[in-house]
Structure formats: C-alpha cells, structure tokens
C-alpha cells in the first residue's frame, strides 16, 4: 500500500511535468509535399547568402514551382521540383539529397566540371613528375584518400619545388607543415598543385597560406547571413596573419588550378591573392567562396546551403570561380607532359 502511494505520487509528478517543454516548443512541421516545399524555399530565402549575386528571385521561383505540386505528384517528381530550386543557385555548396546513406538515392546540386575540359590526368602526373620511378626525391604524407601531401623537387628542374595537397579535408599537423616548407625552402620557386582539391578545412588552407607572406595582408571580407531578412548580413573583414615561421616561402609561386579548385581551396587562393610573387596557372577555378550550413527537412531530406560569400579586397565576388593569371588547358593526348606544370616551370625560370 505504501509503495503504491509512492508510485502514484511519482506518476502524477511525471504526468504534470513530462510534457512541459513540449508546450513551449513549436509544433512539429507537416511532412506533406507542399509543407516541405514551403520549408525548403523558406530556408533558401532566409539563409542563402547570394540570391542577389546569383540573380535568383526566390519568390518568382516559388510561385512557378509550387503550382506543379498536387496530390498525384510522386516522390521522384517532387524531388525534381525541389531540386530545381537547388540547381538555380549554381552553387557546389548547395545540395539536396534524399538519403545520405543510399548512394543510389536522388540528389540535386551543381556540377562544377560541366562544360570544362579535364584539368589534371593522374597518370601523366605520376608517370612524368611525381612517381617514384621518375622522381626519387618526392616525399609524401600518407593518409586521406591516398596522400595528404606530396612534395619535393621536379625532375625537369631540380631547383623548382613541387607541392600537391589533393584535399584540405585532412589533418596535417603544424610539425608536418614545418617539415614540408623546410624541405622546400632552398628551391628557387614553387609549383603548388591545387588541382582536384575541392576543399575541406578552411583553417588548414589558411594555415598554409600564412607561410607565403611575412606581413599581414588584408584579403577582403566574408559576408554572413545573420537573420531572415533580405538585408540581414554582417561582414567579417579578414587580414591574413603571417605564420612567423623560419620556413616561410617568399619566392615565386605558381598555383595550378582547375574547376575542382573549390571551397577551402578558394579560401587559400583569396588569402594569397594580394601576394605579388604568386600567380595562378591552369583553368578557371570552381569558386565556392562561402561557408556552408546544413540540416534536414521535415521529411528527412538533407540540405546544404552557402550562408556567406567572400568578396575580395578588390570587391570581386569569388563564388563563381576566378580566371587564372595564365590560362592553360591540359592536352590529354600528349601523355609525356602536363602542359600546366610545364608552363609553371617555364614561368619560374
């Protein structure tokens, strides 16, 4: 009897309080197609940072697409309608994915390489420049998807250094960065291969950039969306601080670019853009200057959006990519040389 009373008291207490926070929460959203459509277009309207720069009128787009949704609309058709909103942004950071765990699931985004020739051929690179059979002086940091870093000198000119960071989506310690730049410090110039590097950690890219200057450099500003209104932006002005390392690299540098130079690689590029001894060679970059937010729609579909953009010290918008200082297109039929590397070596002579 005594324990029954205790149980009743406890149950009463639980009943009174267990739903209290829910009374203070917003109701769960609906998951039908129209509700999800409204949720996604509202997210784009409130969070996407470059509607004006990308010339996207979200209200017109919403009105045009919403009428296509009705009770007979299938999931596939609905995804395609929603995907049109994503594609209209022409932004590699902005995507819509039905199910991240299903590689065969539906997805919508922007293809950076569409309409551009290949910027790199791994076989040409390995067989003529960095493979151990042709270059015994090359060093690597294992890890990532193959290597985290490849560096050394080039067999075509042992005074020219070569550094390839295939991705910024890796960890490279301060000691490892010091080792790389220590090994390269006696070269007369550097070919920094950034091709295929679609991004990763912008802080790591910035750390590398800090080795290419001995003074602070104003690089521009990152404009963040800070509220739901169309004018709710705030600018963070960025000044690159030098690494202060004894192994800083102040000699001429040729950065090799292609369309996959994106996101954190764009962070690297705008960080070193004001440095006069640094030039870019290759193809137009992919851009992706902004920072990314992501989440799930009420029906579980994954979304990501650029919620900032970077505008450089000259006022240039970088999100659609930038043309290289020296445009060079790779000739895939000539397997004996990489025209982009060869041009970079020529510039460093």
């Amino acid at each position: 009897m005594k324990y029954l009373k205790i149980k009743i008291y406890l149950l009463l207490f639980l009943a009174v309080f267990s739903s209290c926070e829910k009374a203070l929460m917003e109701p769960n959203p609906e998951t039908d197609a129209l509700a999800v459509f409204d949720e996604y277009t509202t997210l784009v309207q409130e969070k996407y940072a470059m509607l004006e720069f990308k010339n996207v009128n979200i209200n017109t787009l919403r009105n045009n697409l919403r009428g296509k949704i009705n009770t007979t609309t299938t999931q596939k058709e609905f995804f395609e309608i929603l995907g049109e909103v994503t594609k209209s942004l022409r932004d590699g950071h902005s995507s819509l994915i039905e199910d991240q765990s299903n590689p065969n699931g539906m997805s919508a985004g922007f293809d950076l390489e569409e309409g551009y020739p290949a910027g790199i051929d791994a076989a040409i690179l390995v067989n003529n420049y960095i493979g151990t059979t042709v270059n015994s002086e090359i060093k690597t940091l294992a890890g990532g998807q193959g290597f985290r870093a490849v560096w050394g000198t080039l067999p075509q000119d042992r005074k020219v250094g070569y550094l390839w960071i295939p991705s910024w989506n890796v960890e490279i310690s301060d000691d490892e960065i010091e080792r790389i730049f220590s090994d390269l410090k006696d070269t007369k110039g550097l070919v920094f291969d950034m091709r295929t590097n679609t991004g990763g950690d912008p802080a790591l890219a910035t750390k590398f950039a800090s080795y290419f200057t001995d003074k602070s450099i104003y690089t521009g500003f990152e404009r963040f969306k800070t509220g739901p209104g169309p004018k709710d932006f705030s600018d963070s002005h960025i000044t690159l601080q030098p690494s202060g390392s004894a192994n800083k690299y102040l000699k001429p540098v040729m950065i090799l670019t292609d369309r996959n130079v994106y996101s954190a690689s764009t962070t690297f590029l705008y960080s070193v853009d004001p440095v006069e001894s640094i030039k870019t060679v290759g193809q137009r970059t992919g851009g992706g200057s902004g920072s990314v937010a992501d989440g799930y729609l009420a029906n579980g579909w994954y979304w990501s959006l650029s919620t900032s953009e970077f505008i450089d010290a000259q006022g240039k918008h970088l999100d659609d990519g930038v043309e290289p200082d020296i445009p060079v297109v790779l000739n895939l039929e000539d397997t004996a040389k990489d025209e982009v590397i060869e041009r970079a070596i020529l510039e460093l002579k």
Binding site: E46, K47, A49, P202, A203, A205, T206, K207, S210, F221, E222, F224, K225, T226, G227, P228, D232, S234, D235, S236, H237, I238, L240, Q241, T267, S291, A293, T307, S308
Partner: peptide
C-alpha cells in the same frame, strides 16, 4: 551556432569571423 552558420551569433554579427 548562429542563425545561418556554425559560429556564435555574436561572432557573426560583430564581424569577428576569421579562420585564423
């Protein structure tokens, strides 16, 4: 996390964002 990015709202509003 702020309104639109994984940094505090006051960091973004005050213009303090910097990868360094």
């Amino acid at each position: 996390t702020g309104f639109a990015f994984s940094a505090s709202q006051n960091v973004l509003e005050n213009g303090d964002f910097d990868y360094q």
